[in-house]
Amino acid sequence: MFLVKIGEIFIAFLVSIGNVAVFFVKTMLAGIIPPYYYKQIARQAVQIGYFSLPIVGLTALFTGMAMTLQCYTGFSEFTAETAIPSVVMIAITRELGPVLTALMVTGRLGASMTAEIGTMKVTEQIDALKTLAVNSYKYLVFPRLLASVTLLPLLVFINDIVGILGGYLVGVYYLDFNSANYVHNTFSAMTSWDILSGMLKGSVFGFIICLMGCYSGYLSKEGAEGVGRATINSVVSSSILILLLDCILTFILF
């Protein structure tokens, strides 16, 4: 009985993966064939890129500041304070930048994508799109997917800059580091791969956030409660997948 239950859960898991894959293929097939909805793509780019800047910036600033303080507490015991700028830089660009950006965007946009598409589903707006001869994957999902995959890396890059700046502010104005030395130690340790690998992670996370957000919205049923459940599923599954993929990508990239 127990084995049967495990088997059922495993099969349901495989079916879900299959459904998400079919959803993605349908979106790509619909998206690459003209006509292209440029207005929708621009709208989603503004939503995902521009309106996420404040929350991403604040998260990066505070994380960079806290990170520098925490490093100082540990490193000062071994008189290794000079390593702080490079450690903060590496932690932010390779790890904290992409992961925190993705988690913040999941909370802000993944949830909103699911709620918007879910509400459209339960109020027959998606059916209305189809009856007006508009492919809903092309109109609703593809612009979001394109904007997420291309703009998440840019948000990660901005996160890197602000996070390192946060570390600099605490290091120089609170811990009395020499400004020129701090900057030198930060950039002498930096390689372009630190930045690019973080941005690559951002692109993968953007793909996950959008795919899970839109897919969960399409699965919504049973009114407002169903939309609420779909939103929870979307945020939880995106967050877990982001952390899982971050671990896998870190193994692959470094």
């Binding site: 909805y37 459209m120 109020t123 027959e124 209305a128 007006l132 508009v134």
Partner: peptide, 26 residues
């Protein structure tokens, strides 16, 4: 043409954009 039970108007668009939707996008 379809008139849905609840109207199924697109919430994020104003009246004119709703009415022109099929003409412009379809």
């Amino acid at each position: 043409g379809v008139l849905f039970q609840g109207g199924a108007l697109f919430d994020s668009m104003n009246v004119i954009d709703n009415v022109t939707f099929g003409l412009v996008y379809g």
